[in-house]
Design a protein around this nucleic acid. Structure first.
Lengths: 185, 185
DNA sequence: CGCACCATGTAATGCGTTACATGATTTT
DNA sequence: AAAATCATGTAACGCATTACATGGTGCG
């Protein structure tokens, strides 16, 4: 998947590994993430496969920059992926739900404390999607040659994040209330 | 994480790798998953670490069964994990959102077809959480010595799945409607 | 003075999937 | 006759994280 993301992002404009990582951290980060080291190794791999090319620019005050661009083969690989239909819902992983599944084994007070903490964290995230992400999308749209249609879909992913967090909060509030009633009737 | 899940499940009762896998597929499957081969290797690993023990029972008509049980050290490791607070929201991955992020690069008709297909898949999943999972929880509760408190949390994970899918559907319906308006005004 | 930013990479290790290998019994 | 269930595992590979290694500039 990271391979596809890198091919997709580099179609907007050529970038260095470092630039890609910073872009990743503000845009795609909410539904996919990668460490800088993985970005570097995956870029190298894609170049080895002929899907990217790179050229090095020397700089005297800072380290050299290696800028990657997509080749024709890279563009083709990306579009192949994009046009082949996805016929199964993604198998997802929610580590915190594992904790909830086994929460009966923990003392009730500990469980409640953990749930309240997690609720606060998701409240913060919801706030971020509502008040910060719209500005981020604007910023990215200005520094990247993106179409209006791109922005429609970027905004759709933001709304997904917002709705996901709002939904998560509702669910947690209900669970916490239920447990509170059971502990202190 | 699979290590923790195996330790958690084996505390209800001793099981073979095969039994664990079938239990995994109907319970935890909605927020974590693993292949049978990984279950076998992880069980072996946990035994090597002294967190599980196993004994083999010969059978004449079927292959031998290796039944695993949790050791004291295993119980301790599980409770350590359970009592150490989770202070960051999980970094999640939604592969389909990557597709949406780049959907502007696909022909509008292709994008709409894919979105409608995915909507149907999530509709099926919602139906499953609403009408099948409650029965599954009952079944598991009957074959496994689980407390009432366990069932409260298992039911909570079911509600999470239900709410997640309902929310996903709402989001997709909105996006599809928005795109339909733009294609054929 | 220390931290963040810019900038690149490698090496070791761990987690997870796919493919390989076997084989009897039961259900459709 | 074919598929699903029961039952175990290994080997190769790929994806991802952590740790290691380097070093100048700018800001508070």
């Amino acid at each position: 998947m990271l391979r596809i993301i890198l091919l997709g992002l580099l179609q907007y404009r050529p970038m260095t590994g470092y630039e890609i990582k910073t872009l990743l951290d503000v845009s795609i980060n909410h539904f996919w993430h990668a460490k800088l080291s993985q970005v570097y190794t995956t870029l190298k791999q894609l170049e080895g496969d002929g899907l990217l090319t790179s050229r090095v620019e020397a700089q005297d005050d800072r380290p050299d920059r290696r800028t990657y661009s997509v080749t024709e083969a890279g563009r083709a690989a990306f579009h192949d992926w994009q046009l082949s239909p996805i016929v199964e819902p993604d198998p997802l992983k929610f580590p915190f739900l594992v904790w909830v599944f086994f929460a009966a084994q923990a003392p009730p007070a500990v469980a409640l404390t953990q749930l309240r903490l997690m609720r606060d964290l998701h409240r913060q995230r919801l706030h971020y999607y509502q008040h910060t992400t719209p500005d981020v999308i604007q910023d990215v749209a200005e520094t990247t040659p993106a179409s209006e249609r791109d922005i429609i879909f970027w905004e759709a992913t933001r709304r997904f994040g917002e709705a996901f967090e709002a939904n998560y909060l509702r669910w947690m509030d209900e669970l916490i209330t239920q447990l509170e009633r059971e502990i202190a009737p």
